[in-house]
Design a protein around this nucleic acid. Structure first.
Lengths: 375, 375
DNA sequence: CTGAAAGCGCTAACAT
DNA sequence: ATGTTAGCGCTTTCAG
C-alpha cells in the first residue's frame, strides 16, 4: 500500500458516486464560496496531532499508530482537505504535468497522437498540457518557454523545423527530458519517435511500379517538412531504382491548385499514369480534381496517398494509402518520456537518446489498380 | 506598459531567434544539467539590490530608478532567471491553466473545440490541459478531481450525463468557474455553450419533407446523450407537425448493424424514403451500407446527416448535413470562462450563468435530393 | 525609491 | 511514534 489515502482526495467526502453516503453530501462545505481551503495545520489541530503526522498520513507512511491514523483520516474527511500542489512543487515535487507542443490539435494525425499521449500521462498520474504552434518556429519557441515557465516535468514536441539550430540549443539546455514526435530534432541528443516515411513512400511507389505504372508523379504539397522530405526520398529511390523519371510537383495547396495541376499535366504530351500524394489534404484535393475532370481512377491514372483517413475506404474508388501507426507514435513518445522521467535522480544524466522508427503499412484498396473485394 | 520585462522570460538571453546576438548563445548556462534555477535573491545579490526591487522589476512596477532597473535587468538576463510559478501560486496567484474535460481528443468535433479553446487560453496567457472521459461518468469525476488537485483556474466540460446529480453537486461546490460545452449540466447554475440541436434537426427534417419525403426514418445511433436527444426532439417535432410517422432506429453501432438495419427496413412493405442520421459515424455507416446494397441516393432514399465532415462534399453523391459551429463552441466557452475569471474579486460571487445557443446551418448537397452544382 | 522580514502550505531533518 | 522547525521562492506590507 503506497498512498492509501489518495482516495480521500480523488473523491472527497460525499462525492463518491458508488459507495457514497448521501447524508454526508450536503452539509460539508458551506455554500458560500470558501476562499481558503483547509491546510495541514488545520487538520493537525482538529486531530490533535502535529503537522508531520498529518503529512505522513497523507503520504502513506506506515510508521503511524493505527489510532492516530484513524483520527487524522477523520479530520481530513471532515475538513474536505486536499493538499496544495503549489506548496509541494515549491518543495521540489514534480508538477505531474507534461507538455505537448504540436502544430495543431484539429489535425486528425496530431489529435490521435495527443489522445494516445494523454492516456499514457494518465497512467503515470500526470496531466497533459497541449499547446499549438501552427508550424510557426517563432510561436513554437515562445510556447516552449511558456511550458517551461509552467514547469512541466517533460515535453513532447513535433518540431516545425527539424534542423533549427535555435530550437536545438534551447532544447539542449532544458533541464527536463524532451522527446521528439513525428519529426526529429536533429543533433539535439533527444529521443525521437517517427514513422518510417522513407520506407513507406518507397513501398508505395514500388507498388505502383509493379502495377506497370511508368510516369508516376509525386504530388508533394508544401515540401518543407522533414516528414515530407523523407517521403520524397523514398519516392525518388523507388523510381530511380526502376530507371523511371522522378517528377515532383509542389504546387498543390488547395482544390483550385490541384485542379489546375492535374489538368495541365494530363494534357501534356506524356501524361502521368499515376499520382503519389504525400499528405492527406493533397490526396483529397487530387482525388476531387480527378473526379471533377472525369479522369478514370485507376484506369487513366492510379492514385496512392500517404496517410490514411476515415473515408478512404468509402469513397469510390476506395483509395490506397500508406497508413501510419498514429496511436503508437503518441503512445511510445509518452512512454519514453516517462521512462526518462523515472531515470532522473537514479542515473546522473538522462538516458541514452533512442530513435524509434515505426513501420508504416500499405493499405491496398482500389485506386492503385488492385482489385479489392467491394466494401 | 504593464509587464515590460516578460520578454526577458519569453526569450531568455541568446535564445531570441530574430534579434538575437549569436555570441551570447553558447556560454551562458553550463552544459552540465543545472539542477537549481536562479532565484530572486541570486539576481538581487548580483545586481546589488534587495529582493523587493527585483520583484518590482519583474512585475513591471514603474516605481524603480531607471538606473537600478538597468542593473537588475542585466542580472536577470545574465542568470537566465525565470520566476518560479509554484512560489507565485503558493502566494495566491492563478495557475494560468484551465482544464478541458471532454470525451475524446481524437474526435474531430472535440479536437476542433479544443483547438479553439486553446487559442483563447493563449490570448489570456494561459495553458490548456486536456483530459478525456470516454463518456464514462466515473472517469469524468475522477479526472475532474485530478484537475482540481492541479488547481486549474477554471474548467470547460462536456458532461457525459447532463442530468447527473453527482456531477452537479461536485461542480456546484467547486470554487472555480465552470462552463459546460456541447452539452449542458442541468441545474448546476453554470454557463453553457451549445449548438441548437433541436432547431437544426427540425430544419433538416423539414427540408426532407419539402423534398416530398413521407417516411423519414431517424437513425439515432446510441441515444443517451443530451445532444442526440435534442436532435430527436427536433426530428419528432418536424414529422409530427407534418402528420408523418415518427420512426426511430437506435440500432446502428457500426457498419454491420447499419447494413442489417438498412437492408431489413428497405425490404419492408412500406420502406423508408429518407434517412436522417444523428451523428457522424452513423451517417458514414448508413452511407456505406446504402452504397453496398446499391440503393440509389437520393432516388430511392434521401440521406441527411447531422454534423459535417471533411469528405461529405467529396463522396458521390455529396451528403447534405447539418453543420455545427464547432470552433465557435470552443471559442465562446473559453471566452465565457475567462470573463468569469476576470470577475472574481470584482463582484462578490460569480457572474450570472448564461446559456449560449448557437445556430446550426443546413448545408444542402446532393443526398437530400437537391440538385447542386458539381464539385 | 528601496530594503527587511513575514508568511503562503508543505515536507524532511532532527529532536524527543 | 510523534512533534518542532527550517526553508522551498516569491510578493508584500511596513519602514526607512
Amino acid at each position: 500500500m503506497d498512498i492509501p489515502l489518495e482516495a480521500a482526495f480523488v473523491c472527497p467526502p460525499g462525492l463518491r458516486i458508488d459507495w457514497g453516503h448521501p447524508e454526508n453530501c450536503a452539509d460539508r462545505l458551506p455554500m458560500t464560496t470558501r476562499s481558503k481551503r483547509p491546510t495541514v495545520s488545520e487538520v493537525a489541530r482538529l486531530a490533535g496531532v502535529g503537522t508531520t503526522t498529518v503529512s505522513r498520513v497523507i503520504n502513506g507512511s506506515t510508521r503511524v499508530d493505527p489510532n492516530t491514523l484513524e483520527r487524522v483520516t477523520r479530520a481530513i474527511e471532515k475538513l474536505g482537505y486536499m493538499p496544495n500542489q503549489a506548496a509541494r512543487i515549491l518543495r521540489g515535487a514534480r508538477t505531474r504535468t507534461i507538455g505537448l507542443l504540436i502544430p495543431s490539435i484539429a489535425d486528425p494525425f496530431f489529435s490521435s497522437c495527443a489522445e494516445a499521449a494523454q492516456a499514457i500521462a494518465r497512467v503515470n498520474d500526470s496531466l497533459l498540457t497541449v499547446i499549438t504552434t501552427q508550424n510557426d518556429p517563432h510561436v513554437e519557441i515562445e510556447n516552449l518557454n511558456v511550458l517551461m515557465r509552467h514547469q512541466t516535468d517533460g515535453l513532447i514536441i513535433a518540431p516545425a523545423n527539424s534542423q533549427s539550430p535555435v530550437l536545438r540549443d534551447i532544447v539542449q539546455r532544458l533541464t527536463v527530458p524532451v522527446v521528439a514526435m513525428d519529426r526529429p530534432l536533429l543533433n539535439a541528443g533527444i529521443s525521437s519517435v517517427l514513422a518510417d516515411g522513407f520506407a513507406g513512400a518507397q513501398e508505395a511507389t514500388q507498388h505502383l511500379i509493379e502495377h506497370g505504372r511508368r510516369r508516376i508523379v509525386c504530388l508533394t504539397g508544401e515540401a518543407t517538412l522533414y516528414t515530407i522530405r523523407e517521403r520524397i526520398r523514398g519516392y525518388r529511390k523507388a523510381v530511380e531504382s526502376a530507371r523511371l523519371p522522378c517528377i515532383l510537383d509542389t504546387s498543390i495547396r488547395d482544390y483550385k491548385s490541384a485542379e489546375y495541376a492535374v489538368q495541365s499535366m494530363m494534357s501534356e504530351a506524356e501524361p502521368p499514369d499515376a499520382f503519389f500524394t504525400l499528405k492527406n489534404s493533397t490526396t483529397i484535393h487530387a482525388f476531387e480534381a480527378l473526379q471533377k475532370l472525369k479522369i478514370a481512377i485507376p484506369e487513366s491514372v492510379a492514385l496512392v496517398g500517404y496517410d490514411d483517413f476515415e473515408l478512404a475506404a468509402t469513397v469510390r474508388p476506395s483509395i490506397t494509402v500508406v497508413q501510419q501507426p498514429v496511436d503508437e507514435i503518441g503512445r511510445i513518445a509518452a512512454e519514453i518520456l516517462f521512462e526518462n522521467l523515472a531515470q532522473i535522480g537514479v542515473r546522473p544524466h538522462h538516458m541514452e537518446p533512442q530513435c524509434v522508427q515505426l513501420k508504416t503499412r500499405l493499405i491496398r484498396r482500389s485506386s492503385c489498380g488492385c482489385s479489392v473485394l467491394a466494401g
